[in-house]
């Protein structure tokens, strides 16, 4: 079910600009890995390279390899859409489809990938909304527009939409940065529950959040303005936050820079 991701000397480019430099990291299945680091250090770009969303931006490309259970997802015969079905993504700002109801939003991924049968859709929608801890709040208004929900509910709707297609890995790009503390708590609880079934990677600016939800933490930074970001170290969250190997990590964690 959950799969392992490994990158081999992965560099990401926007046109001629290198945004991420030479990152090799292994992300274990059924765990939560957090990416932390200062703004502009390339952690979001790196995250997007993990499910081939990076290349959606015109001129963006990568060098190196991303292996999903030892299979290179950038191999020429691999279909990017299929990769993204396997590795789902939740974005910083909740982005439900405005023309669709709550039900249709959750069913969108399945429908657009060809599933038609009503009974299967119904059960998938309920299962996903339950997994996203949203079912009880929306069960009576599944036909109402998804854009009418609160910010936190919208983000959980987007999570439900992402897990409805049953991915192996779930990437989250600062999923709580637009939310209030209570909604954040709801999402963090959710991440904790989803960990049993998915490999989760979360980018966050909030170090307490990284400490709370993740098993492994990877610290990214950049050598200076305009320089590409790089991976300083990745280790168990416990170790990173108490006794990191690198001085730079300690400086960042303790708030001495960044």
């Amino acid at each position: 079910m959950a799969k392992r991701i490994e990158t081999v000397e992965l560099s990401c480019f926007y046109g001629k600009t290198k945004a991420v430099d030479d990152v090799s990291i292994a992300i274990e299945p059924k765990s939560v890995t957090a990416f932390i680091g200062p703004s502009g250090c390339g952690k979001s770009t790196f995250l997007r390279a993990l499910n081939r969303m990076h290349e959606v931006v015109p001129g963006a490309r990568i060098e190196g390899q991303v292996l999903l259970d030892d299979e290179d997802i950038y191999a020429p015969e691999i279909d990017a859409a299929a990769v993204r079905r396997t590795i789902g993504m939740v974005f910083q700002r909740p982005n439900p489809f405005p023309t669709m109801s709550i039900y249709d939003n959750v069913a969108a991924g399945l429908r657009l990938n060809g599933l038609r049968r009503k009974s299967e859709l119904d059960s998938a929608v309920e299962r996903s909304l339950r997994s996203a801890n949203l079912w009880d709040e929306v069960r009576s208004r599944l036909n109402k527009p998804g854009a009418g929900l609160s910010g936190g509910q919208q983000q959980r709707l987007c999570i439900a939409r992402a897990i409805a297609v049953e991915p192996q890995v779930l990437l989250m790009d600062e999923p709580c940065s637009a939310l209030d503390p209570i909604s954040t708590l709801a999402i963090e609880d959710l991440i904790f529950e989803l960990k049993d079934r998915y490999t989760i990677v979360i980018v966050t600016h909030n170090m307490q959040q990284a400490a709370r939800v993740s098993d492994v933490t990877a610290f990214f930074t950049l050598r200076g303005p305009g320089e590409p970001g790089y991976l300083v170290e990745a280790d168990t969250t416990q170790k990173i936050f108490t006794n990191p190997s690198e001085k730079r990590t300690e400086d960042y964690i303790t708030g001495r820079f960044g």
Partner: peptide, 18 residues
């Protein structure tokens, strides 16, 4: 918004269908 296209791509929906 580009965010809607990205949301759709992230679900594994091909470009033409998006």
């Amino acid at each position: 918004p580009a965010a809607l296209r990205e949301a759709s791509y992230a679900l594994g929906v091909p470009k033409w269908k998006t």
